[in-house]
Write a protein that binds this DNA or RNA. Structure first.
Lengths: 346, 346
DNA sequence: TTGAAAGCGCTAACAG
DNA sequence: CTGTTAGCGCTTTCAA
């Protein structure tokens, strides 16, 4: 509760000197500095960051706008792992994190700019917002530095970090194709996600490259939900029993698809190969274990924070970062049973 | 960026009046209030909470001190789910959350009190700290209101929220006993966790009640880690092949124990019944699925926030909350093969 | 019903 | 090297 004023009094100097001494300015006598430091310690002084921020117009605080801070997120842990990454990086660089929840009604009343301006955050990281979220428009127009997770928008004040979704999806589908599959379905997320568009592109590109015709009716949306994917997978597999492999835009949906397939009497991977995307925890615990595309969620968070802080501290350079993916082969994918194997579709 | 000063100028009143008008005080003419509100909207005014907090000595901010914000937490999601609960409750009540990570070195230099006083949080919720953490001592001595998760300490300024661990553990062991098991091992967490002590008590109480002698050598510590539990379980089962059931103080450790058992050629649940604690996501996805004690982590978080905010707003009452647990029966526990079943130990 | 003035704790010119 | 002064944006006595 001691203030620099108290210290000044006790040390017999002015507040200015105290401020300068404590902030490591060079233009202060070492003797007085020591004296002041001693008094500060004695009085258990700690600076009031509110006051400092008020005058400095910098809070050393990063706002975190997460729209998916829900208990269901527990299944894929996306939010949490990204948060860990952000937290670690911010911690290293001396920034604190303030959480803006967009769940609560209270805060939904407020605009993005209000949220940020009131708390005077230096910058913001946004995660889990959809492309049609009203906040997104505000972000782009606002000049508060911000980094978007998984939304490729770049400008002077906004950057982004994402995984190479297209490449990842392509790897997954390539893998299925290599295993001999040619009737490959896809369970995608939803229209309001950039990653869905990109993963679809990857799927199409892989087919294209293997000279397999793209069939629109082979692709359904599962909204990134296990339950919805289960429903959609069942429909898809019923309508197109010739499908021997499915690529799912998330592991959670892959789990749903496997459930559906099993209920329909299809064995995995013998009758149906299933590949996912994300490499979540459950992917290695499910049975069969899930072949999937790994993306490093922690690193997404970490890089986001790096990018933002670089922007805040005026470092030059591009404001984007695209991370690599890798294929994790497990039990859920298998060579297509080769009753009549041919390299070309008939 | 507009301030009340700007509004005052535009509206032709004093800053005092603006302040009072915007804050809903009654002693201001409705006409002028409307005028002021209009101007405020026009100028896109949003209050500077730093300035307000500085004079009001309230920040409407809760500090979150989590020592387990690590990627490994992904497996049990404890941290994340508690966070969700806190976040939701805080959001509802108009508080923002600020994350103090104790991972970073930077912040480990600072004492608990410094952390809180600098950022001027109104109160703190602490999670995941061990009983020998130096912060804990500070917390108790400090008079900043705070709520502890899973550490039963209560005073004027500190409260806690926890699960009824003893009762939960007893339920689990009771269940094993009902299934006919009498040689029941336990894989506990570690000495620096209150929950471990309590779960051990529950284990002992259940045995006691069933007139089974407590054997110290049947209990080992797995540090709440899957890998360590695996090691310890193997040792335990080797040393005491007569054991037919194991109660683990966490699901993660139960998974480790199952791994060890399987590697030793024991089938689960036929040769060995395993029960866990927590009811994490993986418990229902592992094979066999895991019998466990469910605790509601989201609610722990939510109640923590309620408790803290009540304290902050001066509500009277006890500062603790102990949540119920429930038994979730799944595949990993089974009747003991009754070669020579008897109700009493010989 | 309104305004002038003081002050929260800090930093930053500007003199000396 | 040190102190004086002003001011960040807000709330709050106290008078008018």
């Amino acid at each position: 509760m001691a203030t620099i004023k108290d210290i000044a009094k006790h040390a017999g100097v002015s507040v200015t000197t105290v401020s300068r001494a404590l902030n490591g300015y060079s233009d202060v006598n070492e003797k007085t500095r020591e004296k002041i430091k001693a008094v500060a310690r004695e009085l258990q002084y700690s600076p009031n960051l509110l006051a400092r921020s008020l005058v400095m117009k910098k809070t050393k605080t990063i706002g975190l706008l997460v729209s998916g801070m829900r208990i269901e997120g527990s299944k894929d842990n996306f939010t949490y792992e990204v948060l860990c990454g952000i937290n670690d990086c911010a911690g290293e660089k001396g920034y604190d994190l303030i959480l803006f929840s967009t769940n609560s009604e209270q805060q939904q009343q407020k605009t993005y700019n209000q949220l940020c301006q009131e708390r005077k955050v230096d910058g913001v990281i946004l995660q889990g917002i959809k492309t049609d979220d009203p906040y997104l428009k505000e972000v782009v127009e606002s000049d508060i530095p911000c980094v978007l997770v998984d939304i490729p928008i770049e400008s002077d004040s906004v950057g982004y970090v994402t995984t190479n979704n297209k490449q990842g999806a392509k790897m997954a589908v390539d893998h299925l194709i290599e295993l001999g599959h040619r009737q490959i379905g896809m369970i995608n997320g939803h229209e309001q996600a950039f990653v869905s568009k990109q993963r679809l592109q990857g799927y199409q590109e892989a087919l294209d490259q293997a000279k397999i015709d793209y069939q629109e009716q082979y692709v359904v949306n599962g909204s990134f939900l296990e339950s919805e994917a289960e429903v959609q997978a069942e429909k898809l597999l019923h309508a197109h029993p010739e499908i021997t492999a499915v690529f799912c835009a998330s592991d959670l949906m892959a789990l749903g698809a496997m459930k559906a397939a099993r209920r329909m009497g299809k064995r995995i991977p013998d009758d149906l190969s299933v590949a996912g995307f994300d490499n979540i925890m459950l992917a290695s615990y499910s049975s069969p274990t899930l072949t999937t595309i790994a993306q490093d969620r922690y690193q997404i968070g970490f890089e986001s924070a790096i990018l933002l802080i670089d922007m805040l501290e005026g470092k030059e350079g591009t404001h984007k970062k695209v991370l690599k993916t890798s294929l994790v082969k497990r039990e859920s994918t298998k060579l297509k049973p080769t009753r009549s194997f041919s390299t070309k579709t008939t």
